[in-house]
Write a protein that binds this DNA or RNA. Structure first.
Length: 709
DNA sequence: CCCAAGGTATTTTTT
DNA sequence: ATACCTTGGG
């Protein structure tokens, strides 16, 4: 295992049992180092696997790490503490729910649920949603929690508008308490408090965890850092791995400074740099290095490779986004015909909205593609509806679930009836479900019409309660949920494409339950259905689209972090798009954008293609953009400029010899007939033009041979 | 209570 | 362009 490592990797893997900070550049083999370190601890240092705590950012990364570790150790390990921050905190909170002041079946609120609850809180305070937007309140609350601040801690410093935010935060905390739910940030915060307030418990985990490893350390936030410090305050050996140049989540609270802070807080930290890149060609690496060197706040690191120089970076300047998409698709088609696999190719963009044009172009060309990101499976409205039925059946006190599905599909229960239920709660306390039972027993509480509708809902829920408690297999229960709730019928009746897709999703939901394996230990004795709910909240991204057929990968650059592809197209590299409009004029944000560009470029192994459009239709408006400043930061010698470039601030480019053709110009070819020049590439004897012919389609021609008229 | 028309906002996203 | 959400008429 150790023989495959380079000297730096080896020194990281076998570094002392003190603390280690590994600055691992892109493609420098950091995952191997982490896994090897764990294996080394077990095999040569006598560490029990369950005495190691390893934290990652995504479930996918955690899964990979587990698998690689198990295959090195040659055994399947049942009590491995490898997971995401949130997943591990969840585990601790379940185990110690009493000490954490949570009820046994506490549920997790995802971002969407959280927004709904916040909306209710805003409304209950009679505040104007325009003045106090849900999203603003939500990020206020989450930011506070991520800084470790409860509402009572902020109180002293409150003034002005913050006073209202604080009041909302307080009310929100109360609602969560009442509902027995915990949001994502709360998982971290509550877990920190659990450890901090229970010295014996902390002591227990101090002696349990002898080694702590953290991946993607540059993206940890304050509360996560606090958590690591708490758990490591005993005698654990801590190793954190990160790359300050790849920190791209500052906008959601990640603190790169944690890297510097680490050296201060953890005495005698050994610093190891992994700078040898095993992924990209020298050309790509040199360009990426040149780009990132424009950032001022860096710890400093220079990636190098023993690999080939490789192809130059292609830079294509298009007129508009359609032209850009067309160029990308043509290029892909050419690569495919040269034997490249579709799977080897990725198109990366700054924002999701940019995917549509690419998709359309790919469809037109008949190329398979797979899109990552967007609305994930368990976040789809119909799935969340089905989940809400399940939740309410298991826990009739779940008001959030109640509100969500009481009239979905519509069954004649409107705002008026709900208002009556809420009023009853306001004066008598309790939950919506309890209020419903009570008021239905009171004659004349509702109009006969409302009463009928409510009774129907009541008996539906009673029926579902029986079903989810009857001990059948989970998927059988779920099948009945979508059947009896009327969800299935509702979408079926729509008879539209969208409706049909939703029916498919609901069926998929049932079969997802079949695949679900509940591996938690007995301590956290949750029912299967309850475990399923927690699993879905924490790992909603896990249901990946079928990876069987080869397809071009489409995703945001953020989503591409940690991945690599032989060929990478980076599109929309324009001022206002990338760097995004909001970042322009803000040095800190610009540096993060530059890091994002760096991350995108370093995904490419062999060929990098960057494109920009002079005019782009965005949000329904046509905007003209200059090529991104990032392009100007790349050494010209590494670029193969296909067109444009003269629109860049650098002034008229010396890169391209004057071209005898204009874009849009009509030309005639001896055998292909009449066509229009779409683009050109290269120069001098290699000058090639792309011509769209009226009859034979679009072709690339070498001007020197084509004999165009 | 239901649906359809109109107004508004819109980087990036895991958990 | 569009998706989402609120609002007003049937």
């Amino acid at each position: 295992m150790l023989t495959k490592l380079n000297p730096e990797q080896l020194s990281a893997v076998t570094s002392s049992l003190g603390h280690t900070l590994v600055l691992a550049g892109a493609g420098s083999g950091k995952t191997s180092v982490l896994v090897s370190r764990m294996a080394w601890l077990v095999q040569t240092q006598g560490f029990a696997p369950e005495s190691i705590l390893a934290v990652t950012f995504t479930n996918k990364a955690a899964g990979e790490m587990k698998q690689r570790l198990q295959s090195i150790l040659g055994q399947s390990l049942n009590e491995l503490w490898v997971g995401t921050f949130h997943g591990l905190c969840h585990r601790l909170l379940r185990r110690h729910h009493v000490l954490a002041h949570l009820n046994e079946g506490f549920q997790i609120l995802d971002a969407d649920d959280q927004a709904r609850l916040i909306k209710q809180v805003i409304q209950s305070k009679q505040l104007d949603e325009q003045l106090w937007p849900i999203k603003a309140v939500q990020s206020y609350i989450n930011n506070q929690k991520e800084e470790g601040m409860r509402a009572k801690h902020v109180m002293a410093t409150s003034y002005g508008p913050e006073k209202t935010y604080l009041a909302l935060y307080t009310a929100y905390e109360k609602s969560c308490e009442k509902l027995g739910v915990v949001d994502f940030a709360e998982l971290m915060l509550r877990c920190c408090e659990l450890l901090r307030d229970n010295p014996q418990l902390l002591q227990h985990y101090h002696s349990k965890f002898r080694a702590i490893l953290v991946d993607e350390f540059q993206d940890t936030n304050s509360i996560q850092y606090t958590w690591i410090r708490l758990l490591s305050a005993g005698h654990a050996s801590v190793m954190v791995v990160g790359d300050d140049d790849q920190s791209i989540y500052g906008w959601r609270g990640a603190k790169i400074e944690n890297i510097q802070q680490f050296e201060r807080d953890f005495p005698e930290t050994q610093l190891i740099r992994l700078e040898q890149n095993y992924r990209s060609t020298a050309t790509i690496l040199e360009a990426a290095n040149a780009l990132i060197s424009h950032n001022v706040s860096r710890m400093g690191k220079a990636l190098w490779t023993e690999g080939q120089t490789g192809n130059k970076i292609l830079l294509y300047g298009s007129f508009n986004e359609l032209d850009e998409a067309r160029y990308v698709v043509d290029k892909i088609t050419a690569m495919i015909s040269e034997g490249q696999s579709l799977d080897a190719i990725a198109c990366l963009y700054r924002s999701n909205a940019q995917s549509r044009v690419l998709e359309e172009a790919l469809i037109r060309q008949g190329l398979a593609y797979r899109i990552y990101g967007g609305v994930r499976f368990f976040e789809r409205a119909e799935i969340k509806d089905a989940m809400a039925y399940l939740r309410l059946s298991l826990n009739p006190l779940d008001d959030l679930a109640f509100e969500r599905i009481v009239n979905v599909p519509t069954r004649g229960i409107g705002e008026k009836s709900l208002e009556q239920l809420r009023e009853h709660i306001a004066s008598h306390g309790g939950t919506l479900w309890e209020a419903l039972q009570f008021l239905l027993n009171k004659p004349s509480a509702f109009t006969s019409r409302a009463s009928t509708a409510l009774r129907a809902f009541q008996s539906l829920m009673l029926n579902l309660q029986k079903i989810v408690n009857d001990g059948d297999a989970l998927e059988m229960q779920l099948a009945q949920v979508i059947e009896h709730s009327g969800l299935l019928r509702h979408f079926m009746n729509m008879k539209t494409e969208a409706g049909f897709a939703r029916v498919e999703n609901l069926k998929e939901w049932v079969s997802a339950a079949k695949q679900f394996r509940y591996e938690a230990t007995k301590e956290e004795h949750l029912s299967w259905a309850n475990a399923f709910i927690a699993h879905v909240a924490l790992e909603s991204g896990d249901m990946q689209v079928d990876a069987d057929t080869p397809a071009v990968h489409l995703m945001t650059i953020h989503a591409a972090k940690g991945l690599e592809f032989p060929v990478v197209f980076m599109v929309g590299v324009e001022e206002g798009v990338f760097p995004s409009r909001g970042a322009i004029g803000d040095e800190k944000k610009l540096e993060e954008e530059r890091r994002l560009c760096y991350v995108g470029m370093t995904r490419a192994k062999a060929q990098l293609v960057m494109t920009y459009a002079e005019v782009r239709r965005l949000y329904g408006r046509e905007e003209s953009h200059r090529p991104s400043r990032f392009l100007k930061e790349l050494p010209e010698t590494l670029l193969n400029v296909v067109r444009g470039y003269d629109t860049m601030k650098k002034g008229p480019s010396k890169l391209i010899a004057p071209v005898p053709y204009k874009i849009g110009q009509k030309v005639t070819h001896a055998s292909f007939g009449e066509g229009i020049i779409l683009a050109y590439e290269g120069g001098g004897a290699h000058l090639t033009v792309q011509v769209r012919f009226q009859n034979v389609g679009t072709k690339w021609l070498v001007v020197a041979y084509a004999n165009l008229a």
